[in-house]
Design a protein around this nucleic acid. Structure first.
Lengths: 151, 151
DNA sequence: TAGAGTTAGTTATGCGGATAACGTTAGCCG
DNA sequence: CGGCTAACGTTATCCGCATAACTAACTCTA
């Protein structure tokens, strides 16, 4: 592949990252949220209470990122962290009532954002989009460089 | 669009952003570069010397980001900033010799990254990928929310 | 030509995310 | 049982990127 083609791909991904994130920031600002925090809230809304390590895994970010985001969301009253009864290292993270209602609002604009994002695309292309993007993600995922050899 | 579909789209974009950037970081680390800096070098290599405001526009980031990135690349000896002769506010940013050779190295792994990214995709899909991603980017670009009404 | 508005650039500050280093607790096994 | 390793979480530090606020310089016009 020549450089121009390669640059077109890489640059397109980079710009999409920047603009998509900026759009999220604009949509979340009225709710007092920053990009990244919505993922934490949505994960808790989807799966229910869980410990930090599970959150880290589910969000695809490192534990220190979870610690800091959780601290801010806790300070804002959207989540609660309580010691895990069976493991004194872990804390259970869960949504407060405020967090639950906030998560519902986030779901709303999550749908609006997705529709806005795929606007103008053929229905088939839009339907295949998540799978396509996940393929790209898998191709560059440093955690799974190559398919595991033996189970 | 229901929430699950919307989340699949938004989450896929978010994860692709994280993993693609992480892969870039891993590839750039041996060169002593951080993600984002490669875009600045490549832009200078492509277009030649230019002032900061043009860089900001070309990279799609805000001026303060250019200031800080440029300062670090300058400290590393990869770029040089000289006062613009015809405009005493502006500075001309250009690659040093070190920066030029570094940019060539970046081009190499830029190609490798793109090939890695689109691995396993049908040739046609890969060829259409940049256009598709640019469509998505345009759809969420907060700078051009809706097509301008009158000129 | 003088003032208003615009543009280039910087500093300050805040957030997400990463790595490195550390203390604490579980769990495993000799 | 005691010690080794692994896992959970936190702090510190770094970078990219954003906005807000500011200075300095250019430009346009009344």
């Amino acid at each position: 592949m020549d450089f121009d083609q390669a640059d077109a791909v890489n640059q397109a991904i980079r710009l999409l990252s920047l603009r998509h994130r900026a759009r999220i920031a604009a949509l979340l600002a009225p709710l007092g949220l920053h990009p990244g925090q919505e993922a934490l809230l949505l994960e808790l809304a989807r799966t229910g209470p869980m410990i930090g390590a599970q959150l880290s895994e589910a969000l695809g970010v490192e534990p220190p990122s979870v610690t800091l985001m959780a601290r801010k969301l806790e300070a804002a009253g959207h989540i609660r962290r309580t010691p895990a009864p069976d493991d004194r290292r872990a804390s259970i993270v869960e949504l407060t009532e405020s967090g639950k209602t906030l998560a519902e609002q986030v779901k709303q604009l999550w749908c609006a954002l997705a529709e806005e994002t795929v606007a103008g695309l053929p229905a088939r292309t839009a339907a295949e989009l998540p799978g396509l993007l996940n393929t790209l993600t898998g191709n560059v995922d440093t955690k799974r460089p190559r398919p595991p050899a033996r189970p």
